[in-house]
Write a protein that binds this DNA or RNA. Structure first.
Lengths: 203, 203
DNA sequence: GTCTATAAAAAGATAGAC
DNA sequence: GTCTATCTTTTTATAGAC
């Protein structure tokens, strides 16, 4: 969820916000192609059709732009996780839904996710810590579903942490090949993944 | 496997080679901490206890050093895959062995693997292509084992490519937390991972 | 084989005109 | 809101002494 604006942040027009969002998305694509540090400000300006002056009118710094991309990913992922929580179903059904939602985000935002999974160390210590916390929160959602399944006897007595990491790896790794317009849709991958994983831990 | 030296490469002493290997390993650790582009030559020199002049006596360029780290990872991974091929067992046993070998490499070379999985785009086009080919060869080993299991009736009729990608994701993702001296050993993770995956695709 | 000094280019960010 | 020109720092790599 977006945080409330603090009082020292200037008021911005809707037009400004829309243009900024465009810049964030376009820049994510450029970063995903060449890497964060390898991409210069000049290159970002060219991709966005702006000069340096105009560019810095929309972003505070290159690193703040990177944080905005991270924000987009975590926001989307958490929205998906919340939808699953509210749906309420068996642990198996919830795990399958979590996979659907996660792959949907990866499919819709492949560039943002690439940046999220690669350029985390480029964030300042303070911002890195903020995203570590949010990431951990998501992981705990997955662990909680696994634990619920173990408690209900639906899943065998696997290690929830280790199993959550296996599940996350299997799903997160799709960022390398799951693209909009690609041969495989999010659902095409999510269904067989859920089949494998849920059979794999079923009693 | 290491490629044969071409005639235009100068002869090097054993001492030179040993020192160079140390430099490659130490530099991998530094890259894994801060990222390839964010790490300067001066920083690498300091970590290796050398001045610039001496440093460039052992490496051709920063990018050539990066390629050496990639080489180390692919060499080790392929050696493991070859061991599995020669062992010959049921597809289930082979898949479990592949997982053992892969996690063993990730456990022994966490920094090199980090660099391998993050800094691939920093390689020149030519070298990137070379590693793309070797990576694809490894993926095909995994697909071949899956196909063998389907043919023998041991595994159900899953999509070999999609299933190989799921398997790779589950295992590769361990680079984030599988470290020498850590709470979990390579075997500790490989066993439950194989249990989940093989049950997941069994008939 | 290792050092110091330096070159040459590129980086992120800002100033001030319009 | 957008531009061009510029500042300051840092980058990778080389030269040449020892």
């Amino acid at each position: 969820m977006p945080r409330a604006a603090t009082s020292d942040e200037p008021q911005r027009s809707e037009k400004w916000k829309a243009r900024r969002n465009e810049i964030v998305d376009t820049s994510a694509r450029v970063f995903a192609r060449g890497g964060y540090h390898a991409t210069g400000i000049v290159e970002l300006c060219a991709a966005n059709g702006l000069g340096k002056g105009a560019f810095y009118h929309y972003i505070e710094s290159k690193e703040e732009l990177l944080a905005a991309i991270h924000d987009r990913v975590m926001d989307e992922v958490m929205v998906g996780a919340d939808r699953v929580s509210q749906a309420s179903g068996s642990p198996s059904a919830q795990l399958a839904m979590l996979g659907d939602e996660l792959l949907d985000v990866i499919h819709r935002y492949p560039d943002h996710v690439w940046v999220f999974l690669h350029e985390f160390p480029a964030l300042t210590a303070e911002r890195a810590q903020q995203f570590r916390v949010r990431r951990r929160q998501y992981e705990q959602r997955v662990e909680a579903v696994l634990q619920a399944g173990i408690d209900s006897g639906e899943f065998r007595a696997v290690d929830p942490r280790l199993t959550a990491l296996a599940w996350l790896g299997m799903h997160n790794y799709t960022y390398l090949w799951l693209k909009p317009g690609g041969r495989v849709s999010a659902r095409d991958a999510a269904k067989p993944f859920a089949d494998i994983f849920i059979r794999g831990i079923a009693t």
